[in-house]
Simulated assay, not measured.
Amino acid sequence: MMKKFTMKSIFAFLATAMLAMMLVGCGGEKKEEAKADAGKGEKWIVAINSTFPPFESVKEGTKDYQGIDIDIAHYLAKKMNKQVEFTDMKFASLVPTLQSGRANIIISAISPTEERMKVVDFTKPYYFPMKAIICKKGAGFDTMDKLKGQKAGASMGTTFVKDLKAVPGIDVVELDTTPLVIQDIKNGRLAGGLFDSSQAAVFVKQNPELELHIVEAPVLMGDTFAIALPKGSKDTEKLNALLKEMRTNGELHKILVEHLGEDATKQYEAATEKLDIAKL
C-alpha cells in the first residue's frame, strides 16, 4: 500500500536533506583544511651519506645514525621546532635529492663548491677540515707528490677526488664509499687514499695496520663543511645564527669532543683559530 505524502511531510523531507548536505559539505571542508595543514613545519627531512665517520655513520648493531652532523642536526631541529627524519643515500645523490624536494636540507659534511652554489644555498661553514693521506703502516706516503706513479682513491663526488686529480702522475680511482677506499688500501689495490683528517683518525684507530699523514695546505671555502638548503631558502640566516650560537655556548665543542676526543678537538680548535676563513 502506497503511503500518502502531505505538503508538510514533503517540506520536512526537503529540509532534512538540505541539512544533511550542509553537514557533509562542512565536513568535507574541514577534512580539506586539516589535510592542507597536516605536517606543516613539523618534519625536517635531512639528507645524509652515512659512510663518513665521525660525521655520520650507522651505530653498530642498530639502525640509528650517529656522528657530528647527526648531533648538529638534532640541535638545530630542536631550536627550529622541527622533527628530524634522516634519509640516507650515496654522496653524489645528496644535491639532486635536495633539488627535487625529496629532502629539506643537507647536513652531511658537504662542501660549498662553486658548482654546488649555483644550484643550492649554503650556510656559513661550521667545520674547517684538514686533509690526510691514509696508507699502509710504513709506506710513508706523507705528501701528495709521493703518490705520483701510484694508484690513490677517494669517495666518488667528493672534493678529495678533485684534489688527487690536480696532482699530475696520480692514477685516481673513484669508489662509491669511503670504506671501500679503505678496503682497497688494506688489500693493496690502492697505495693510498685522501680523506678528511678527522675521518682518517677514526679509520686508522679501527685499522692499526694503517697510518695517516696530515697534508699541509690552506683551507679554502670549497673545502669547508656547510649546510645546504634549497635555492632561495628563508632559513639560511636563521641557521647561521644558530651555528654561531653553538660555537659561543660550547655546544659545538661538546659535540666535537664526543666524536673526535678531547685532544683532537683541542688541536682542531687551535688550528682553526689561525684561519682567516674561520672568522667569517
Rank of each mutant, 00 (worst) to 15 (best):
P168C: 14
E209T: 14
T159H: 13
A152V: 00
G192H: 12
G157M: 05
I182E: 01
G153I: 01
T178K: 08
P179M: 07
T177D: 05
T177G: 03
D142C: 00
S198G: 11
K148H: 01
G192R: 12
L147R: 01
V181P: 12
K148G: 02
I182K: 00
G140C: 01
P168T: 14
K162A: 07
I182V: 07
T159N: 10
D196G: 12
Q183E: 14
I170F: 02
K165P: 11
G153Q: 04
P179F: 02
A200N: 02
T177W: 04
D176P: 03
L175Q: 10
T143D: 02
L175V: 05
G149M: 05
D176S: 03
A166L: 11
I182P: 03
N187R: 15
G169A: 09
N207S: 15
Q183T: 04
K186H: 08
L164I: 04
F203K: 15
F160S: 05
V202E: 10
T159Q: 10
L194N: 13
I185M: 04
E211A: 15
L180Y: 06
T143G: 05
L212D: 15
A166F: 07
L147H: 00
F203A: 12
D196W: 14
Q183N: 13
G188C: 01
E174H: 07
D176Q: 10
V202I: 15
G149F: 12
A166M: 11
E211L: 15
K186I: 12
P179K: 06
V204A: 10
P168S: 15
D196M: 04
G140I: 01
K148D: 06
V204C: 09
T158Y: 00
S198M: 08
A201F: 15
G188S: 06
L190R: 14
Q199F: 07
L210S: 12
K165Q: 11
A154G: 04
S155E: 10
D184L: 08
V172F: 07
G153V: 05
I185P: 09
V172D: 00
A191L: 07
N207K: 14
D142N: 10
G157N: 06
P179L: 01
N207C: 14
L180E: 06
G149H: 06
M144P: 04
V204H: 12
T159F: 09
L164A: 03
A166S: 09
G153Y: 01
G188N: 01
Q183S: 12
G192T: 09
T177P: 05
G149D: 10
S198R: 15
